[in-house]
Design a protein around this nucleic acid. Structure first.
Lengths: 206, 206
DNA sequence: GCGTTTCGGTACGCCGACGTATCGATGAGT
DNA sequence: ACTCATCGATACGTCGGCGTACCGAAACGC
């Protein structure tokens, strides 16, 4: 009965009226992820997030039961593939474009990944959220790009280098800050793809 | 006077007589690093280490002022290059052997690295110790291997793929557990080197 | 406009870990 | 054999963050 709920965010939920707008919620998410990137997961305090968003700690706990659930929700909200819409018809160009996009997000993503590295050991929900936010979308998109290149016949399906490309790109993105102390900016990653990835696929430039 | 100290570990240090033998100390170091690998840095407790080594918490604090200093000391003690003695005269064989060695240590090293990822944000000494224990020795050794290959003329000095090889290997070692959920065992890494690294150097097998 | 719900602010209890202090026991050096 | 520093054990103080409870105030539904 009374199933005639016009168009609320929740179809049912009769008396649900949180004053937290989606924009406000996103502020919370942005704040907590920023703190995580800055100080690491364990150093983030609910009090700190509340202060930086000028809300009450109680307000945060009304929306999310615990701190890991809060962070996991923030991760899920930030889920987005950096590779969407890449489909130029050329595998080499697609890989270059993916490299550019990955490099553009590398600084933020790497810090987040590094900061959560240990926290996901203890909370499976956090681990799943991190995978779904930062890893799976990009890896899947990258595999799509490669698959299309194979289907177009640009590279042999049994090229042994194919299976390592996602791990290579992901790995180099995360490795450069550690080894050289500076972020893997787009120029670096594009150059890496051109120097070390395309050749193994037989996609050498003219 | 009485400068005739035969062959103690400390030449002077008149009344220094700690009962902690070097072997015992190494037990402490092994225990704390094992706990770090298992639960992450912040979850490690001095009490837990003391319990697992059947020593007193006070004993640990007598040797090391604080927990980060203790962990840093453990890291420094574990410093060792996994690539020592690799010099077969063939760059391809050297890289294969380095890959085998890196793969053999990958599981332990990656867990340690991941677990300390956030802790090094806050403690510079810890960061330095981690670099000197897990990163610099292997990267330096790898660069040596590559340099010798260049000097022997096996690969051109201006090959653009050269500069990315350390980051590639380090990155793939750390990336596979994340992407595929299993450690980068030696077989995997050797196959990676053969499929994706050697070709970029023009070292294709017959 | 009025009631009710949620908001921001804050004070509180709780717990766990750090790091210190104390105490008998033990083992090394003379 | 004697002495004394160090050992293992444990109890304690301290601190900080989690999560809860309570308060006036503001905003939404009717």
């Amino acid at each position: 009965m009374t199933s005639q709920a016009a168009d609320g965010p929740e179809t049912v939920a009769a008396t649900r009226r949180s004053k937290i707008t989606p924009e406000r919620e996103q502020e919370f998410f942005d704040a907590v992820l920023e703190q995580v990137r800055a100080c690491g997961y364990d150093s983030v305090t609910m009090e700190g997030v509340a202060a930086s968003t000028r809300c009450s700690k109680a307000t945060l706990y009304r929306q999310w039961k615990t701190k890991p659930q809060f962070v996991a929700a923030a991760l899920r909200a930030s889920r987005q593939s950096r590779f969407d819409g890449i489909d130029s018809g050329s595998l080499a160009d697609d890989l270059r474009e993916a490299a550019r996009a990955a490099g553009a997000w590398s600084a933020k993503d790497t810090r987040l990944f590094q900061a959560l590295g240990h926290a996901v050991m203890e909370d499976p929900e956090l681990k799943k959220a991190l995978r779904e936010a930062l890893i799976d979308p990009e890896i899947d998109a990258l595999r799509q790009i490669l698959r299309r290149g194979v289907e177009r016949g640009e590279v042999a399906a049994d090229n042994p280098a194919l299976e390592y490309i996602p791990a290579q790109i992901f790995g180099v993105l995360r490795a450069r800050p550690v080894l050289e102390g500076e972020d893997a900016d787009p120029e670096y990653i594009v150059r890496f793809v051109e120097a070390a990835v395309l050749p193994t696929l037989g996609l050498t430039e003219t």
